[in-house]
Design a protein around this nucleic acid. Structure first.
Length: 739
DNA sequence: ATGATGATATTTTTT
DNA sequence: ATATCATCAT
């Protein structure tokens, strides 16, 4: 058999990793170095050269998209569908295991998965039921407490409160939440992982079976694994498995959701026989872009060490644009994209990247006005829309009468006269009897509830029963369709005034299509189609793949951009406080993560990279002034070319780069004459009194100048004092001392 | 049961 | 500025 097709397109380092002898392997793969390629080729190599059965291979990713891509690439490499080979997300695979071994895992056979919104609702309910003050016990925080403990493999019974009453209450809520989930037969995302881990840990025979079966585990984006995912992998690999993990410590940007870069080092300790490979040749970016990214990331301590290089061209310098404000920033980007398109480029070559979603707004406004086609990634996904979740709640209730969250969601939707008071009665009854709401509701009929409420409730219960009965044996999409009509959901939204209602009806119809296109076999379980569909829908909340191929400017957060590449990248909002984000600045780990995020952003660019920042930005309704991001200064100065010649005035930092001669690049007339420019070219009222400068006040202490008005001694100045907050002062009397 | 009012918070996100 | 959410009045 010829192995050429597998190896011929690999460089030496990639080839070494792909053909590594069986055993633990760690591949440190820099951005754009062919990480996924190595992973997929390794799979092909195992099958074709090592004679490993596809049956024995498990490939794990974090997102459905990555899993899909990997499957497609393996298929094209092998020239056939990889068949029994398991490729999936951590959650998807855990789910599959739990479906097979629901009994051993201590679950009910028909367990359903809830997403984080459902989870939060449930927690909120628990807090209310405990009569706790919601301002002190914030559902989001309790949710975070529960999830992060699950991520670390800790159940409520493992936690000690010590002398901390707040913690004690948290633990209590965690325990209550566990009970509630068990009673409702639902499982959250973290639970999938934790259960899958526990079922192996506690059932040696089962574990042994899977160890024998999956001798070859491959993991993508290993730096994003959390504690429980890693523990699960370690269990599976055992002492003599062959885990093959690929990751990049410099691209670890999910610490906030439990990812632990340390797992990379830990891997080496846990598998002493590990073979380490580094992929440092980058095939994506120009020399200048790589050098800038390398220079930046070199500021992080404790890296595993890796320097990207390219044999390609140095390319154009990185361009830096200092905008007056966020509109100017967006207009600049817009203009540059126009130029690109005017020269025959495509809109979709261009990505506008930013730190936080809110920043997309201004760009959207400007692009809209300029008739520039764009697409914003992120935001609500299909299956997360309220009307879809309502419909799913009906389906869940049909599938599982014990699902309290779904019961609450739709018992009075469309409104049928079951108000808060009736619901409270039902809840109380459920609490007393320790039974699901459904059963409690039955018991309350005509007894605890008045005749009117009873009638309404009976209507609801019968509706569900009737639906469940009627829908049996129908094709999945007919079940969905029937439910939508009989429940009155469609009618309900049709009555809603035009705009929103119409879109919702369309979405509901889209749900029917989704059901029609759903292939239940994919899960490889004997689950009835409806249950399989519900599980699928929660686990894959639906990428907005619709118009992905239209020729649009791509807009997304830096996090979303990870794993993607674009010929032209604009990294926008490069301001201290925005990026790095204010909340990360104080803390070294946080700052380093922001830096990695910047590194990720820069290395998305293939040909051209722009960095932009706004000196003035309207944020949360107030204007604020900021320093250019420290990350700008961390990239080698000689690689960066400033686009706009700066005036001496509004330059917050007098560092070498910002003080140097204006570049010779033409300044658009419109911009040179813009109003904000002329306002800003007023001379500072006093030496050292400029925007962003630090000053000391006799009474208020130290602060930063936010705004200047007028000139001479009558000038007024706005200062943000560290202690006293923001104040307007008259220069003449303020006696400010420049620092 | 719907709509007005006011308080509050506002990184990043997958599953 | 704005979005979300709770509470209250209608």
């Amino acid at each position: 058999m010829s192995l050429d097709p597998i190896l011929e397109r690999l460089n030496a380092a990639q080839r070494a990793a792909v053909t590594a002898p069986l055993g633990p392997v760690l591949v440190l793969a820099g951005a754009g170095s062919g990480k996924t390629r190595v992973l997929t080729h390794r799979i092909a190599w195992l099958i074709q050269a090592e004679g490993v059965s596809p049956h024995a291979i498990l490939a794990v990713t974090f997102t459905n998209k990555a899993a899909g891509e990997m499957r497609a690439r393996v298929e094209s490499l092998l020239g056939m569908p990889p068949g029994v080979l398991w490729i999936g997300t951590f959650h998807g695979i855990a789910h599959r295991l739990l479906r097979r071994h629901w009994h051993e895992a201590g679950l009910v056979e028909s367990f359903q998965i809830i997403d984080s919104e459902d989870q939060q609702r449930l927690i909120k309910k628990l807090i209310k039921a405990q009569q706790l003050d919601e301002t002190r016990w914030v559902p989001r925080e309790v949710q975070w407490f529960i999830n992060s403990n699950k991520d670390e493999g800790r159940r409520s019974k493992h936690l000690k409160a010590g002398n901390d009453p707040i913690r004690a209450q948290m633990i209590r809520l965690y325990a209550l939440y566990e009970d509630a989930c068990a009673r409702s037969g639902v499982v959250d995302f973290g639970e999938l992982l934790l259960r899958a881990f526990e079922v192996w840990r506690d059932q040696p025979a089962l574990l042994e079976h899977y160890r024998q079966r999956f001798r070859h585990v491959l993991v993508d984006e290993f730096q994003d694994t959390n504690t429980i995912q890693y523990a699960w992998l370690k269990l599976l690999a055992g002492a003599d498995g062959c885990p093959f993990v690929v990751g990049d410590d410099d691209q670890s940007v999910y610490r906030f959701r439990g990812a632990r870069v340390e797992n990379l080092q830990q891997f080496g300790r846990d598998f002493p026989a590990v073979k380490l490979f580094r992929l440092e040749q980058n095939y994506r970016s120009t020399g200048a872009i790589l050098a800038a990214a390398n220079g930046l990331i070199a500021n992080n301590a404790g890296r595993l060490g890796k320097t990207l290089w390219t044999s390609g061209e140095q390319g154009e310098p990185i361009r830096l644009y200092a905008a007056f404000n966020e509109r100017d920033e967006a207009e600049f980007v817009c203009q540059r994209i126009r130029d690109h398109v005017a020269h025959g480029g495509l809109h979709r070559d261009v990505a506008v990247l930013y730190r936080s979603n809110a920043q997309s707004r201004v760009f959207e406004e400007i692009f809209l006005a300029a008739r520039m086609p764009y697409r914003v990634y992120g935001g609500l996904r299909f299956f997360e829309r309220a009307e879809i979740k309502d419909a799913l709640a009906y389906l869940r209730l049909i599938a599982n009468r014990r699902d309290d969250a779904s019961f609450e969601r739709v018992v009075n939707l469309p409104t049928r006269g079951i108000g808060a008071k009736s619901l409270e009665t039902i809840r109380a009854a459920a609490r007393d009897a320790a039974c699901p709401l459904w059963a409690a509701a039955r018991a309350c009929l005509g007894d605890a509830l008045g005749p009117k409420a009873s009638e309404a409730l009976r209507g609801f219960l019968e509706l569900i029963e009737r639906l469940a009965d009627e829908v049996k044996g129908l094709a999945l999409h007919e079940q969905v369709d029937r439910m939508l009509t009989v429940s009155g959901l469609i009618e309900f939204h049709k009555r809603d005034k035009a705009d929103r209602g119409e879109a919702r009806v369309e979405n509901l119809e889209e749900l029917v299509s989704a059901a029609r296109g759903f292939n239940a076999d994919a899960l490889e379980t004997d689950l009835p189609p409806l249950e399989a569909f519900l599980a699928h829908v929660t686990l894959e909340s639906g990428e907005g793949q619709a118009d992905a191929w239209e020729d649009c400017v791509q807009m997304m957060t830096l996090h979303t951009a990870k794993g993607l590449e674009f010929p032209i990248v604009f990294l926008c909002g490069m301001e201290d406080g925005l990026f790095p984000h204010q909340r990360s600045i104080g803390d070294l780990d946080g700052l380093e993560e922001e830096r990695r995020l910047c590194y990720v952003g820069m290395t998305r660019a293939m040909k051209q990279l722009y960095l932009t920042y706004a000196e003035q930005r309207r944020l949360h309704g107030i204007d604020s002034y900021s320093q250019p991001s420290r990350f700008i200064k961390e990239a080698p100065e000689e690689l960066i070319e400033e686009i706009r010649p700066r005036l001496q005035v509004s330059r917050p930092v007098a560092s070498g780069r910002f003080a140097r001669e204006p570049s010779h690049e033409a300044v658009p007339v419109r911009r040179a004459l813009s109003a904000s420019r002329s306002l800003r070219s007023e001379p500072p009222p006093m030496p050292g009194m400029r925007l962003g400068a630090r000053v000391r006040h006799g009474k208020f202490g130290e602060g930063v100048i936010l705004n200047l008005e007028g000139s001479g001694p009558q000038a007024r100045v706005q200062v943000n004092f560290e202690r006293q907050g923001t104040k307007w002062l008259v220069m003449q009397y303020a006696n400010l001392e420049p620092l």
